[in-house]
Computed example of a mutant assay.
Amino acid sequence: MILLQLTAGQGPEECCLAVGLALKAIEKMCREHKVKVDIVTSTRSERSRGFKSVLLAFDEKDTVSVKHLALQWEGSMLWVCTSPIRPKHKRKNWFFSGKMFEANQQTLDRDITYQACRASGAGGQHVNTTDSAVRATHVATGISVRVESERSQHANKRLARALILQKLEEAKQETAEQDANARWQQHWDLKRGNAVRKFVGEGFKEVRE
């Protein structure tokens, strides 16, 4: 499974516009290469037509070409343009970024339990009378999501799997950041006195007391 997350970070509305334009460009590329792409989740900006963030899931039929496509949108990117929102603003450089996530679908499915459930939202008679919604739970971590945005259970299962993968990546990144902060905290926790080991001289010879 290959996911791509686009984000405007903490940038202004122009950066959100850039994410929206990038989304349109990616959808166009996918149509040209006949690659199916779904918007798993998105957060629209408050003032512009753009997005604060978008999570995309690509069809895995041709993993190599899909991965190549997604990697073209990974890293920090720059949109150079006079602000459509604030034409008199001097700034013309607007940054956004992309991050690709990849996981083996079969391995991921072995770690996830799926439960069909009745869709609760609006969507017509078909949605309301079938168990099209899906609740997915990652057994090892307890991470759970519920998806009912699509009409078919298969489509909702695919989106649920993508959301689980995103949350696992976020948890992994958070753990890495906590570990880095803990290592850096050691610089501040250094205390003089009560040494557990003692070394002397340029030869760094240990002295046992």
Rank of each mutant, 00 (worst) to 15 (best):
S144F: 00
D131A: 15
R158N: 13
L163A: 12
G121W: 06
G121R: 12
Q153F: 10
S132V: 02
H154V: 12
V139D: 08
T129V: 05
T175I: 11
V127K: 09
V139M: 13
H154T: 14
A182L: 14
N181V: 06
L165S: 10
Q178V: 06
A171K: 15
A171Y: 07
K172D: 06
Q185I: 08
H126D: 08
I164K: 11
R161P: 06
K172C: 04
R146S: 14
G123K: 03
E148K: 07
E170S: 14
E177F: 06
T137M: 09
A122P: 12
D131M: 11
Q125P: 11
A176L: 09
H154L: 09
R146C: 14
S152E: 06
S152G: 08
V147N: 06
R183F: 12
T141H: 10
N181P: 07
G124W: 01
K172L: 00
W184S: 13
R135A: 04
S152P: 13
N181H: 12
T129A: 10
R146P: 01
A155S: 08
R158Y: 04
A136Q: 08
G124Y: 07
A160H: 03
G124V: 11
L168E: 03
A180R: 13
A122Q: 10
S152L: 12
Q125K: 12
T130D: 05
A136D: 07
A176C: 05
S132D: 08
H138P: 13
L163C: 03
A122H: 10
A133Y: 07
I143S: 09
E169R: 14
R151K: 13
R135M: 09
E148F: 11
E150T: 02
A171I: 02
G124P: 14
G142Q: 05
R151W: 09
D131V: 04
N156W: 04
W184D: 14
L165I: 12
A140K: 15
A160K: 06
Q153V: 01
T130M: 01
A136H: 00
R158D: 02
V139Y: 09
A162M: 00
S144I: 02
N181F: 03
V145S: 04
W184Y: 14
R151V: 07
E174P: 01
A176K: 11
K167W: 03
A140F: 03
V134C: 02
H126F: 13
V127P: 00
D131L: 12
R135E: 01
L163R: 15
